[in-house]
Design a protein around this nucleic acid. Sequence first.
DNA 1: TATACTGCGCGAAACGTTTCGTTCATTGTA
DNA 2: TACAATGAACGAAACGTTTCGCGCAGTATA
Lengths: 332, 332
Amino acid sequence: MPATIVDIKKKTGLSLATISKYLNGGNVLPENKVKIEAAIKELHYEVNEIARGLVTNKTRTVGILVFSIESPFTGMILHHVGAALRKSGYGMLIVDSCDDEAIEAKNVKYLISKKVDGIIVLPVASKGDFLAPAKNAGIPIVLIDRSLSDIQYDCVRIDNRKSTYHAMKELISRNHKKIAIIASEREYTGRERYNGFMEAMRDAGLDVPVEYQVRATHSIATGYNGMKKLMTLKDRPTGVFMSNYEITLGAMLAMNEAGFKCPDDVSLLGFDDQLFFHLLQPQIYMVEQPMKAMGERAVELLLGRISGVVVEDPVEIALGTRLQKGNSIRTL
Amino acid sequence: MPATIVDIKKKTGLSLATISKYLNGGNVLPENKVKIEAAIKELHYEVNEIARGLVTNKTRTVGILVFSIESPFTGMILHHVGAALRKSGYGMLIVDSCDDEAIEAKNVKYLISKKVDGIIVLPVASKGDFLAPAKNAGIPIVLIDRSLSDIQYDCVRIDNRKSTYHAMKELISRNHKKIAIIASEREYTGRERYNGFMEAMRDAGLDVPVEYQVRATHSIATGYNGMKKLMTLKDRPTGVFMSNYEITLGAMLAMNEAGFKCPDDVSLLGFDDQLFFHLLQPQIYMVEQPMKAMGERAVELLLGRISGVVVEDPVEIALGTRLQKGNSIRTL
DNA sequence: TATACTGCGCGAAACGTTTCGTTCATTGTA
DNA sequence: TACAATGAACGAAACGTTTCGCGCAGTATA
């Protein structure tokens, strides 16, 4: 039903080759250009991307493989990745791994069958085996946020360990000695932040008793339950580091509910700034991730690989973070 | 590089037509079936969906047009819609309208150019004009959550007005007279819930002074600022209805921060249950939307339209809600 | 035994592009 | 004036499928 290049040919008397050349930005005589443009307008012609894809072997679509599409973090990354891709004319075919490695592995194969030009991954698994089929098919891959242990892939993330180490100075320099951590345990980021925390404490000569270390899932429940537990200890910590957005949110609700005040009763340091935290009083010290930059750099890198401009070995890009200062930390 | 149907032909000596028939579930002699299957395994053959799409004029991909990909509500819907689609072999090409009607209109055209088989929309706009190009192109469309005023499209949603009206009985029957509302104003759902609220109050013979009506955006900030404001009134409301998840979250933080207790100082009734609310003490009365059912019904309907099984006029499916009971409402 | 039907297989065309190698006209150079 | 170089257009093949209509067995019907 919709007009094809053949209709343009009939209308203008030009050959398919010439029209195709015009469509792809090649040089065409001014008079022919006019003819073609008129015909396109008249017939409401639009390129059939499917047909084009068949011969160019490109779909102008990238696959996005996310550990969970329900996570607010995922939502923010998708927002920026999506914008950057659209600007370059690419679309996003998104698949949800539902925090399940088996589904994740299946999804990779699905994306291959869809002939995506590249894949951006927020992985569930810690090892890269599941990406092998895509790698073998020659599809460029870029990871965001979470690095993989065994195989080398491009990755755009922050330096979780250093960011945490650095942020911890805010608590330590204000003479806090009893500092607890609530962190996720399963993913790369949670583990790295835990390591940064422990390093900072060790370097400051501070001990972290095991009951000050709450390590569980990446969830509001973890923050809520963790803080509840910490607040009932006979020897309560004076400061708490929370390793991500969900945990921070849950911990704050628990703290409020338990009747403690920040920073009077407990000083807080969180991770993953979100707009709404700015509304709160007191304002929480927060490690702020450059979400926009991460999304954009990842897209830039991926498109570079797709076009063949970037050919060097896989790179690991660690972007800097910003510490959003607040008044949630009391000087002891 | 990857094997094609022609390679299978060479290997088996059968014709393209026969092999294609096998691939699409047609009847083939048992001996040929064996041959083909062996060849497929040996050559690691997989159908090229692009080539198939060119001739069938189907992409097995549906476009998902969301008002904002950052919203948790969107995330949950995408989760269920995605699962249902994948089960039927369909993929999701997601585009983000960034709460901007102009972008939304462009995105529709983009999805058309990508030849999606259908479109699922969580709209920004209140009128349906922007969908006209897709409708004209014969692409089936199903709305989720938000209905459109002018043109008729299939829509799967809840009955916002009734749900709110019914839930309000919890406050009213417990003798609350001074009840405030914090609601979003711009979208369909917020307006309908406002209407349901006002109806319930009117039917109960209760007045709602203008300072008890906070109407702003669909955001945590609205809830936070709204509750802050309500709590500083000299004549404070005894009950507050909050029209969605973000507003409920913001309002609770503000209430905690202002030092008020629920239900002692203020009784709360919210909308959009999320798992983590179950953790809270007190547990909030919440209108719970059937997210999974909404996603699944929408997909079912869309695939029905795509396959031509469903041909009747556009339908508006209003699913029932559940009131999640809690202990956030005090009897006066 | 002649006829009609059924079940499978086949060749060829079609889907709407891009691209390769060639031709043709024009311009510039000797 | 002859010849090379340049620029633009062209025809045809290719991309990997599906599908249409026909042919050919083998089986059932009269």
